[in-house]
């Protein structure tokens, strides 16, 4: 494994909130230099897992190793160095609303480096250019669409040239064209910089395009680990149902409500009006 594309190892990991386990006994090795997709239905613990890997919450038990380093035993400078090797794209970009896109992307550079203003501006322009937003550096996040905010979030996540990139639902809320563009962008970044990427998603179409390795969570545990091809061939009943249902939704978007009979929607007021005088 090359030093700049570390593996991520989850060992006997149990995560949750307030002592209540959401996912238990997780043993996973996410390969370095590849794109791993953590898949699962809503509420299965995907984002919870991501927050634990990012050290935002402490696991109930077990270890999280990034490039062989235990995230929770590192302190001081070692932790500082490891954190700077990590970039994170949050679900809605999580850009600071009080800063422009340029200032948002420049923030890690200004906080952690002593680069001159001119150098910072050039790096910011290059990173925003990478995601096609070079002309929007002076815009505030609320002046941009959801897709643009995500791309700007990606530029910020990439600004310190991280070795590991985490993405939380990168395509959720995007139209198919924007989602496909973002997938291509992630693929290109992964190929160009041979980064370790972990993408948390429930988007099967996106998973098929970008994933080298897939972990499926459900029922409070890991249901599957392997390649996309292996997942497609699975005979597991739950996974089959999950895959087929998602494929069906993609092919023919379905109404989540049964159709209403219009005649049932008319409210009968006759009994309330009985006994009242009609006014012309």
């Amino acid at each position: 494994m090359p030093e700049n594309s570390p593996d991520i190892v989850l060992r006997d990991l149990t995560i949750g909130y307030g002592g209540l386990a959401v996912v238990s006994g997780l043993n996973v090795r996410l390969p370095g230099g590849k794109i791993s997709v953590v898949l699962g239905g809503s509420g299965c613990g995907k984002s919870t897992l991501l927050k634990h890997i990012l050290r935002l919450h402490r696991p109930i038990s077990g270890d999280i190793l990034l490039g062989g380093h235990d995230m929770f035993s590192l302190q001081g400078k070692a932790l500082h160095c490891l954190k700077q090797r990590i970039g994170v794209l949050f679900q809605d970009g999580a850009l600071l609303g009080s800063l422009t896109l340029g200032e948002n992307v420049a923030l890690p550079l200004r906080e952690h480096t002593r680069l001159r203003d001119r150098a910072v501006r050039e790096i910011v322009r290059a990173k925003l250019g990478l995601v096609g937003l070079a002309e929007f550096a002076s815009y505030y996040p609320n002046e941009l669409s959801g897709g643009m905010r995500k791309r700007a979030g990606l530029a910020r996540a990439m600004v310190m040239d991280p070795d590991i990139l985490f993405c939380d639902e990168p395509t959720s809320g995007l139209d198919p064209i924007n989602a496909a563009e973002l997938d291509q962008l992630l693929l290109e970044l992964s190929r160009r910089f041979s980064m370790t990427m972990v993408v948390v998603s429930h988007d099967l179409a996106s998973m098929r395009v970008i994933a080298d390795y897939v972990v499926v969570l459900g029922d409070g545990r890991s249901l599957f680990q392997g390649s996309v091809e292996e997942l497609e061939k699975t005979e597991d009943a739950y996974l089959r149902r999950f895959l087929d249902r998602m494929a069906q939704e993609r092919d023919e978007p379905r109404l989540t409500m049964p159709r209403l009979d219009p005649s049932m929607m008319k409210i009968d007021c006759s009994q309330h009006l009985a006994g009242t005088k009609a006014v012309d």
Binding site: F90, Q91, L96
Partner: peptide, 12 residues
């Protein structure tokens, strides 16, 4: 809106 989480992950 996860902006504070974002700061923490940026080591700020």
């Amino acid at each position: 809106s996860e902006q504070i989480d974002a700061l923490e992950t940026m080591d700020i």
